[in-house]
């Protein structure tokens, strides 16, 4: 489904993603794990194309230069130079780090904005689906995004991403700053979404322990490079991964 080959991303002279190659199988959940500054978010931004937008902004400001090298193939097409909006139309939807909810729009409006690419009937169907996965959102329809709790915001962000009819869903740090209970609930929801709809998902998360059981294949990043990869079971057995990321 998605092939990333020899991907390198530089922020000025600092390397953020170092020669990463990864394959994402259709219909499965792929995990990307790593500590802060490992390059997870940059990887997600590069796959979704947001990095090109950042690059343009930095160029205009005369700020740091962002260089992206390598290839990303999505459904047989090289998309490394494709604009983020076009990638979204192709079905690569990013659920960004720190959620980026539209704070002054209500829950319903947020979901509608997400569904702008969908047809009317798709949007209606997905909306119902989002409310079955996250029943909590149903009661908060009218609430402004900025007044939601962290967990509710995360649910909304995932819901908004779903509304865009993703073929490839990128979840960047979905568990950021959430309570263990909320974590469990979200992990279950993400697993459920993948199983019921078959949407290919990539989850980037530094807190690997709750995510690892649901991923099919995982990559562990360190300082921009992929150091370990394997199926969920292989990763859980790997002693280095164990000590470094699970504290076992």
């Amino acid at each position: 489904m998605l092939e990333v080959k020899n991907l390198m991303v530089f922020y000025e002279n600092a390397i953020a993603v170092n020669n990463i190659s990864m394959t994402v199988t259709e219909g499965k959940i792929t995990g990307v794990f790593g500590a802060n500054s490992a390059g997870k978010s940059t990887l997600m931004r590069t796959i979704s194309g947001i990095i090109l937008d950042q690059k343009k902004k930095q160029e205009m400001k005369g700020g740091e230069r962002i260089t992206v090298l390598g290839s990303i193939t999505f459904a047989g097409e090289d998309i490394i130079h494709m604009k983020p909006s076009d990638r979204a139309r192709k079905g690569i939807i990013l659920c960004p780090e720190r959620r980026r909810i539209f704070a002054e729009s209500s829950v319903m409006e947020n979901l509608k904005i997400g569904g702008i690419l969908a047809t009317r009937s798709q949007a209606k169907k997905t909306l119902d689906y989002v409310f079955t996965v996250f029943p909590a959102l149903k009661e908060l329809k009218k609430r402004e995004g900025g007044f939601l709790s962290g967990g509710e915001q995360q649910m909304l962000a995932i819901g908004r991403a779903l509304m865009a009819q993703p073929k490839l869903l990128l979840l960047d740090e979905p568990l950021l700053g959430l309570s263990p209970l909320m974590e469990q609930m979200l992990v279950k929801a993400m697993h459920g979404i993948n199983k019921q709809t078959g949407i290919t998902t990539i989850i980037a998360e530094q807190y690997a322990r709750p995510i690892l059981p649901i991923v099919h294949y995982g990559y562990v990043l360190e300082n921009g490079g992929a150091v370990v990869e394997g199926t969920s079971r292989e990763l859980m057995k790997n002693p280095d991964v164990k000590s470094a990321y699970f504290g076992l």
Binding site: N6, L69, G70, S71, D78
Partner: peptide
């Protein structure tokens, strides 16, 4: 697909 990219892999 890799060869043309490798040729311009400069920054």
């Amino acid at each position: 697909t890799n060869t043309p990219i490798a040729a311009k892999e400069e920054r």
